[in-house]
Amino acid sequence: MTVLPKDIPGDSLKVTVGTANGKPGDTVTVPVTFADVAKMKNVGTCNFYLGYDASLLEVVSVDAGPIVKNAAVNFSSSASNGTISFLFLDNTITDELITADGVFANIKFKLKSVTAKTTTPVTFKDGGAFGDGTMSKIASVTKTNGSVTIDP
């Protein structure tokens, strides 16, 4: 049996954390987006972790974005102690894959008090994996961190 590389060099799934701005007490939304989904033969499963400074940001909610089908079954998240974990699994293993680019999740943060303008990162942590529509590992994932700026 011969195994051929399935990824064209330079191609990767792009996962990007967005940015937001606000004043202390505001609730802002930071999107997590996927790009080049079709090039990577869709997404059938993924789990990953984001870190944030809990002294500056309070997670209000984490909701599935419009590219997630049947989110009540296929999407899960949790947030505590400065870490947000995400889990997606197409429970049907074929019919509810992520097949389009767009917003995977929206994180709502309540901004805490600061004395001066502060930009705090929302960054990928170690761990996690992504699988394509056949549940094979997506070897190349380009992750881009985001941030939230609090301006009193």
Score class of each variant (00 low, 15 high):
Gly82Trp: 15
Leu13Asp: 05
Val73Gln: 05
Ser55Pro: 08
Thr142Ser: 05
Lys143Gly: 01
Asn106Asp: 05
Leu57Ile: 12
Val15Gln: 05
Val62His: 08
Phe124Met: 01
Thr94Ser: 04
Pro9Val: 10
Met135Ala: 00
Ala54Thr: 12
Lys14Tyr: 14
Asp132Pro: 03
Lys137Asp: 00
Thr99Tyr: 12
Ser12Ile: 12
Ala20Gly: 09
Asp11Asn: 14
Asn74Phe: 00
Ser113Cys: 05
Ile107Asp: 02
Gly133Ile: 01
Ala38Val: 13
Lys6Ala: 10
Gly10Ala: 11
Val68Asn: 07
Asn91Met: 15
Thr123Val: 07
Gly25Cys: 14
Val148Pro: 01
Pro24Ser: 11
Asn21Pro: 14
Ala100Asn: 07
Ser78Pro: 10
Asp7Val: 13
Val141Arg: 03
Asn42Arg: 12
Thr134Val: 05
Asp36Ser: 11
Val73Pro: 11
Thr94Glu: 01
Val114His: 08
Ala129His: 00
Leu13Gln: 09
Ala35Gly: 14
Lys108Arg: 06
Lys117Gly: 04
Val60Met: 09
Thr83Ser: 14
Pro31Ile: 09
Ser80His: 09
Lys143Cys: 00
Phe88Arg: 02
Thr92Leu: 02
Asp151Gln: 14
Gly128Leu: 02
Lys117Pro: 04
Ser76Asn: 10
Asn42His: 11
Gly65Leu: 09
Gly65Ala: 09
Ser140Thr: 10
Ala129Cys: 01
Ile84Met: 03
Val114Arg: 12
Pro152Ile: 11
Ser136Ile: 04
Gly82Ala: 15
Phe130Glu: 02
Ser147Val: 06
Gly25Asn: 09
Pro66Thr: 14
Leu111Cys: 06
Gly22Lys: 10
Asn47Val: 01
Glu58Tyr: 08
Ser85Val: 03
Lys143Ile: 01
Lys110Tyr: 02
Gly10Gln: 10
Asn106Thr: 06
Ser113Arg: 09
Asp101Gln: 03
Ala139Trp: 15
Thr115Cys: 03
Gly133Lys: 07
Asn106Cys: 03
Val30Tyr: 10
Ala100Ser: 09
Asn106Tyr: 08
Ala35Ser: 10
Gly44Asn: 00
Asn74Ala: 03
Ala105Cys: 13
Tyr52Ile: 08
Pro5Tyr: 11
Lys112Gly: 02
Thr134Leu: 04
Asp95Cys: 02
Lys39His: 11
Ile98Phe: 04
Val148Lys: 00
Asn70Ile: 04
Phe75Tyr: 05
Gly102Thr: 03
Thr45Pro: 01
Asn42Ser: 12
Val62Glu: 13
Lys125His: 03
Thr118Asn: 06
Ala71Phe: 08
Asp151Val: 15
Phe48Arg: 01
Lys14Ala: 13
Gly65Pro: 08
Val28Tyr: 05
Gly51Ala: 10
Ala129Leu: 01
Thr92Lys: 05
Val141Ala: 03
Thr94Pro: 04
Asn145Gln: 04
Asp132Leu: 00
Gly25Val: 13
Ala79Trp: 15
Leu56Asp: 12
Val59Lys: 08
Gly131Leu: 01
Thr83Phe: 15
Lys112Gln: 06
Asn70Pro: 00
Lys6Val: 12
Gly133Arg: 09
Phe75Ala: 00
Ser113Thr: 06
Ala116Gln: 05
Gly131Cys: 03
Lys41Ala: 10
Ala54Gln: 12
Val114Ala: 07
Leu97Gln: 04
Thr33Cys: 09
Asp90Ser: 00
Asn145Tyr: 07
Asn106Met: 04
Gly127Pro: 02
Asp90Gly: 04
Val43Ala: 07
Met135Cys: 00
Leu89Gly: 01
Val103Leu: 03
Met40Phe: 05
Val122Gln: 05
Val73Tyr: 05
Tyr52Ala: 08
Ser78Tyr: 15
Lys69Asp: 13
Tyr49Gln: 00
Lys143Val: 02
Gly102Gln: 04
Leu50Asn: 09
Asp36Gly: 13
Phe104Ile: 03
Thr144His: 05
Thr118Lys: 10
Thr94Leu: 08
Thr99Phe: 08
Asp101Thr: 09
Val59Ala: 07
Thr45Tyr: 00
Asn42Glu: 15
Ser136Phe: 15
Ser140Ile: 15
Asp126His: 15
Lys108Leu: 04
Thr142Arg: 08
Val73Glu: 14
Leu13Val: 14
Ala35Leu: 09
Asp101His: 08
Ala139Ser: 05
Thr123Glu: 03
Ile98Gly: 01
Lys69Gln: 10
Thr83Met: 06
Gly131Glu: 00
Val15Glu: 07
Ile150Arg: 14
Asp11Ala: 10
Ala79Gly: 09
Ala116Arg: 09
Thr123Asn: 08
Thr19Lys: 11
Gly133Ala: 03
Ala20Ile: 11
Glu96Thr: 01
Lys110Glu: 04
Ile8Val: 12
Thr149Val: 15
Thr94Trp: 01
Met135Glu: 02
Leu111Pro: 05
Val148Asn: 06
Ile150Gln: 15
Phe88Ile: 04
Phe109Gly: 00
Val43Arg: 00
Thr134Tyr: 04
Ile84Asn: 02
Ala54Tyr: 08
Gly102Val: 12
Ser76Leu: 08
Ala64Tyr: 14
Lys39Gln: 09
Asn42Tyr: 13
Gly65Val: 04
Leu50Tyr: 06
Thr33Gly: 13
Leu4Glu: 11
Val122Arg: 00
Phe48His: 09
Asn70His: 13
Ser80Leu: 14
Phe104Arg: 00
Ser147Ala: 06
Asp7Cys: 09
Thr149Gln: 14
Ser55Ala: 08
Val3Ile: 11
Ala105Thr: 13
Ala64Phe: 07
Thr134Pro: 01
Ile84Arg: 06
Leu111Lys: 04
Val32Ile: 13
Pro121Lys: 11
Gly51Tyr: 11
Leu50Asp: 07
Leu111Phe: 05
Phe75Gly: 02
Ser55Asp: 14
Gly128Gln: 02
Val37Lys: 07
Ser55Lys: 12
Val114Ile: 08
Ser113Phe: 03
Ser113Tyr: 06
Ser55Val: 14
Thr120Tyr: 04
Asp63Gln: 10
Asp95Ile: 03
Leu56Glu: 14
Thr2Ile: 11
Ala79Lys: 15
Lys6Phe: 13
Asp90Cys: 00
Asn81Asp: 14
Glu58Leu: 10
Gly65Phe: 13
Asp151Lys: 14
Asn81Tyr: 15
Ala20Gln: 14
Val30Ile: 13
Phe86Thr: 00
Ile138Val: 08
Thr92Val: 03
Ala64Gln: 07
Ser147Trp: 09
Ser61Phe: 11
Thr29Asn: 14
Thr119His: 07
Glu96Trp: 02
Lys6Asp: 13
Val59Cys: 08
Phe86Ser: 03
Asp11Tyr: 12
Met135His: 00
Ser85Phe: 04
Thr144Glu: 06
Val60Ser: 11
Lys117Asn: 06
Pro31Arg: 09
Val28Asn: 07
Gly128Ser: 02
Leu89Glu: 00
Asp126Trp: 15
Leu89Ile: 03
Asp36Glu: 12
Thr142Val: 06
Lys14Met: 10
Asn70Gly: 13
Ile138Lys: 01
Gly22Arg: 08
Thr19Phe: 10
Asp36Ala: 13
Ile67Ser: 11
Leu87Asn: 01
Ser85Asp: 01
Asp26Gly: 11
Lys108Val: 05
Ala116Ser: 07
Ile84Glu: 14
Val15Pro: 08
Lys23Gln: 13
Thr33Pro: 12
Phe109Met: 05
Gly146Ser: 04
Ala38Glu: 10
Gly131Ile: 00
Asp151Ile: 15
Ala54Cys: 08
Gly65Ile: 04
Val148Cys: 08
Pro5Ile: 07
Phe124Lys: 07
Asp63Leu: 12
Ala139Tyr: 15
Lys137Pro: 01
Phe124Trp: 14
Met135Asp: 00
Gly18Ala: 12
Ala100Thr: 08
Thr19Ala: 13
Val141Pro: 02
Ser76Asp: 14
Gly82Tyr: 15
Met135Gly: 02
Thr99Glu: 11
Ile93Lys: 00
Asn145Leu: 05
Asn145Gly: 10
Ala129Arg: 01
Gly128Met: 00
Ala54Lys: 08
Phe109Cys: 03
Met40Val: 08
Ile98Ser: 03
Ser80Thr: 12
Lys69Pro: 08
Val43Thr: 10
Ile98Asp: 02
Phe124His: 04
Asp63His: 13
Val30Glu: 11
Cys46Phe: 07
Leu87Val: 01
Val43Cys: 10
Ile8Tyr: 10
Tyr52Gln: 10
Asp90Tyr: 06
Ser85Pro: 03
Asn70Arg: 13
Asn70Met: 07
Pro24Ala: 10
Val15His: 06
Lys143His: 01
Ala100Arg: 07
Ala139Met: 04
Thr134Glu: 06
Leu56His: 13
Tyr52Val: 09
Ala38Lys: 11
Asp36Pro: 13
Ala79Ile: 15
Ile98Trp: 01
Pro31Val: 08
Lys41Pro: 10
Pro24Cys: 14
Asp151Glu: 15
Leu111Ile: 06
Pro9Thr: 13
Val60Glu: 10
Val122Ala: 05
Gly131Asn: 00
Gly128His: 03
Ala35Thr: 08
Gly131Tyr: 00
Thr99Gln: 07
Gly131Ala: 02
Ile107Phe: 05
Val103Glu: 00
Thr92Tyr: 00
Pro5Phe: 06
Glu58Gly: 09
Leu56Phe: 09
Gly146His: 05
Asn47Met: 01
Lys125Phe: 03
Ile138Pro: 00
Lys41Ser: 09
Asp126Ala: 15
Asn145Met: 02
Ser113Gly: 08
